[in-house]
Amino acid sequence: MVALVSRSLAALDADVTLAQFRALVLLAGHGPQRSTAMARELQVAPSTLTRMCDRLVRKSLVQRFHRGHDRRSIWLALTPAGRDLVGTVMRARRRELERIVVASGLVASPPAVDLLHDFVRAVGELPDEEWWRRWEASADPVDGAPLMGVHRQADGAWA
């Protein structure tokens, strides 16, 4: 699966690492995230996530923002360009998987499909239909309001 994603990213010349793409997929499937929660989910240090997101923000794939009146927490969300990149790569991966299944002669019987859905849920992922519903809304404004940008100031503080 990693090789499929890697080939899809390379074919797009997306200039996104696999770790960065995993962060984009997390945002696409789970919506806006607090940076601390996202670092835990990706099993990286908060400083590593900050550097990763600095690059994704520069590429206009992710946006930082504050939610409501809480100025302490930094939230992360996909931009429309980030959502589109994830969708393009996921569709390419799906086409490649379909090609592999057809070439191997495997038959997608209902019990086999149910087993795969159970496996997907067991590893904490979303079934395909739910994932795509969430992907569709992943770059929508938060709480009905446009995202308020957050950027790093010259002194390193967030504003």
Rank of each mutant, 00 (worst) to 15 (best):
A3P: 14
L9C: 05
A11R: 15
L12F: 00
L12G: 08
V16N: 08
T17A: 03
Q20E: 15
F21A: 00
R22W: 11
H30S: 11
H30L: 15
R34I: 03
T36M: 13
A37H: 14
A39S: 07
L42K: 03
Q43R: 15
P46N: 05
P46D: 03
M52N: 03
C53G: 11
R55D: 09
R55V: 06
V57F: 02
K59E: 15
S60W: 10
Q63D: 11
F65D: 04
R67T: 09
R67H: 10
G68F: 07
H69W: 13
S73E: 12
W75P: 07
L76T: 01
A81F: 10
A81I: 05
G82F: 05
D84P: 11
D84Y: 07
V86H: 03
V89P: 02
A92T: 13
R95K: 13
L97A: 09
L97K: 10
E98V: 00
R99P: 00
V101N: 03
S104N: 06
S109D: 02
S109W: 13
P111D: 01
P111C: 02
D114Y: 07
L115F: 10
L116R: 15
F119Y: 15
F119Q: 14
E125W: 12
E129C: 14
R134S: 06
W135D: 08
A137D: 10
S138W: 12
V142F: 07
A145K: 13
H151G: 14
D155W: 04
G156E: 08
G156W: 05
